[in-house]
Design a binder for these strands. Sequence first.
RNA 1: GGAGAGAUGGCAGAGUGGUCGAUUGCGGCGGUCUUGAAAACCGUUGUACCGCAAGGUACCAGGGGUUCGAAUCCCUUUCUCUCCGCCA
Length: 422
Amino acid sequence: MLTLKVITENKEEVIRRLAKKRFNGAEIIEQVVELDSKRRALQTTLDANSAEMNNLSKVIGDLFKQGKQAEAADAKTKTAELKEAIKTLGADLDATEKKLNELLVTIPNLPHESVPEGKGAEDNLVERTGGQMPNLPEDAMPHWDLAKKYDLIDFEMGVKITGAGFPVYKGKGARLQRALINFFLDNAREAGYLEVQPPYVVNAASGYGTGQLPDKEGQMYHCQVDDFYLIPTAEVPVTNMYRDVILQESELPIKNTAYSACFRREAGSYGKDVRGLNRLHQFDKVEIVRIDTPEHSYESLTEMVNYVQTLVDKLELPWRILRLCGGDMSFTSAITFDFEVFAAAQKRWLEVSSVSNFESYQANRLKCRFKSEDKKTQLCHTLNGSALALPRIVAALLENNQTPDGILIPKALVPYTGFENI
RNA sequence: GGAGAGAUGGCAGAGUGGUCGAUUGCGGCGGUCUUGAAAACCGUUGUACCGCAAGGUACCAGGGGUUCGAAUCCCUUUCUCUCCGCCA
């Protein structure tokens, strides 16, 4: 969430910048500012009352020690009133802070100045493109048909044992998954990311820390007995490693990578978007996460985007990078670049990565801070990106590389698959 | 799942009603000494909020209670550890 300082000190600017995200903040910002000044006033009065109470208690203690029972009893009568006031003020303060917090979590992050105006996906800017478009015959098959033809993925079996969106990978299909995971992890490690293996299930505090809660409660699978959530991305457990942590500036930037299965309910999606591997409830992804200083975070962002580009290049897929417009960006992001690869049989661009800088928005909730060289404690910037999500990569690989003699595996991947074609 | 023990500052570990934001050790930081380092010695070392400041307030797992006063007593929730059971 945004810091109170930013909101109260730059009211007009915050409202203006929120408008780019299609968020009308005028009223809510006004409420926040009002509640904050109420909060300050309450705090000041409460502190004064508490100070008086503390003093009085000390005096009473001394009187008892000196054996002045009567005077002590007299002083005691004065405390009742103070006590009552402290209780009321405290409750009032709690209620005010709670309300303030409830408002704050409904305000999205401010978009970076370089984020383009726009309503939705159609307004995103193509930043750059690369890779070779394949030349497929008219009767080229979409990946779901190829998966059946070569017995790589059994969607019906997944339906039988779980439900739609939980495919079963088989044979070379399963080996391709494993190869891609290792390929992505090895590349990330070589690029300086520390590999971690996090839990796939997190508690509510972690969901709250990265902003899935309370915002996207309905999008996560929830284990009600233990109040745990299945992770929608490794970003959640990995970023939460740094919750309530004060880092040293010398430790930054922290670079972590993690493979995980990801679980998303995807409530409300439908139609051609969900065909085959295009949208699943369970999928595999390798994530990269960075914790950085505010001064260096945009340099980190560029490095991450360039890194993801090397992956799609090695996989020889046609790709493009989109700079998301204000209306299409996620709630918590300050700037986001999406990577899409072209699936030539479907003739569709498929999103395979999303690289974002959250600036201090996540860090503020996480209480992830660092101590700078001059001993000041301040909020970190957090960034993350997919590097990469598997299913749509597999879809594009199968579709684009189909030949009458089978499906060709890109050279860079062969050492991982152990086979050159399917 | 059953029984027991516990949760205190970066870590270890004292503290059982006021003088405790908290002894001490380790670690960290600064300094003395040294060609440099180590050792030794000296000093320093949590976070948040309010306040222009001086200063004040809160925090000893979370929540509630008793009391003029709670790290300390009571209730409760969560978590951790040990033993037993089950099990990859």
